[in-house]
């Protein structure tokens, strides 16, 4: 069994990586436990799952802040590797206070700078070859919008046509990573159309992602639409086939 530690910037990313891993690796091959980092200590949070003969064990930790993802990894890498974790992943959004300070639109050069600088930070760590940071560009919500059938599963009235009417574009025809600076706004607009507000609450994310399937994921990354998600999916597929 491969042990992997995943550090996420928040609750939404934790729920996403949990559901994504289950879809890709499969419930018969995965075990996981979830934690929240609070006052530098990890506290168990719902929920955990144990397969009878898992290929992969994931420890998923919500660190509560985008700038804490790499800090939390840096502080724990030695201990985790000592305890048998083979890989350490980080997951955070590109959209951040630091990004907004520098640009109010998607800037591919700036994206590349953030990615390169984060990689430089990782390269200073002791086990840099085992650590990988994934950026959701610009936010996790890009990945949700790219998996366009999720909304219809949440509320049958949210068909692609209806969403096109609401947002003014077809979710299948755009690349959310390149086109949407703050995709949370578009998800909120979709929620408003059914009389709700998108608050990124635990219950909302659980409800949206409960419907996530392998075909949704392949929809999301088809035709190179979400390269940032694709790189994460590839890594998880490798884990599932024990080829990491």
């Amino acid at each position: 069994m491969i042990k992997i530690a995943v550090f996420t910037e928040g609750q939404s990313d934790l729920i996403f990586i949990r559901q994504l891993s289950c879809c890709i690796i499969g419930y018969d091959s995965i075990s996981f436990k979830c934690f929240r980092l609070f006052a530098e200590e990890t506290h168990p949070i719902p929920y955990g799952f144990e397969a009878a003969n898992p290929l992969v064990y994931l420890m998923i930790v919500d660190v509560g802040n985008d700038t804490k993802v790499l800090s939390a990894i840096r502080d724990r890498e030695k201990n985790l590797i000592t305890k048998g974790y083979e890989r350490i992943f980080g997951l955070r959004d590109m959209y951040s206070q630091a990004y907004r300070k520098r640009s109010s639109v998607i800037d591919q050069d700036l994206n590349a700078t953030f990615i390169a600088q984060a990689q430089a930070t990782i390269s200073q760590m002791h086990y840099s070859d085992r650590i990988q940071l994934f950026f959701a560009i610009m936010e996790l919500e890009s990945w949700l919008l790219s998996s366009h059938n999720l909304f219809c599963k949440l509320d049958p009235s949210l068909s692609l046509d209806k969403i096109q009417t609401i947002l003014g574009f077809n979710l299948k025809e755009i690349c959310p990573e390149n086109d949407l600076f703050h995709p949370t706004d578009q998800v909120n607009t979709i929620f408003n159309s059914i009389g709700q507000r998108y608050k990124k609450s635990k219950s909302q994310l659980e409800a949206i992602l409960a419907g996530l399937s392998e075909s949704d994921i392949h929809d999301a990354i088809r035709d190179n639409r979400c390269p940032s998600l694709e790189s994460l999916v590839i890594q998880l597929e490798l884990l599932g086939t024990d080829r990491v």
């Binding site: 700038t67 993802v69 790499l70 800090s71 840096r74 630091a98 953030f114 984060a118 930070t121």
Partner: peptide
């Protein structure tokens, strides 16, 4: 200070990292 933000680390690491 601006470059530090790009490292992706938290504020405290400005003091404790290299």
């Amino acid at each position: 200070f601006d470059d530090f933000e790009l490292t992706g680390l938290g504020n405290f690491d400005l003091l404790t990292s290299d």
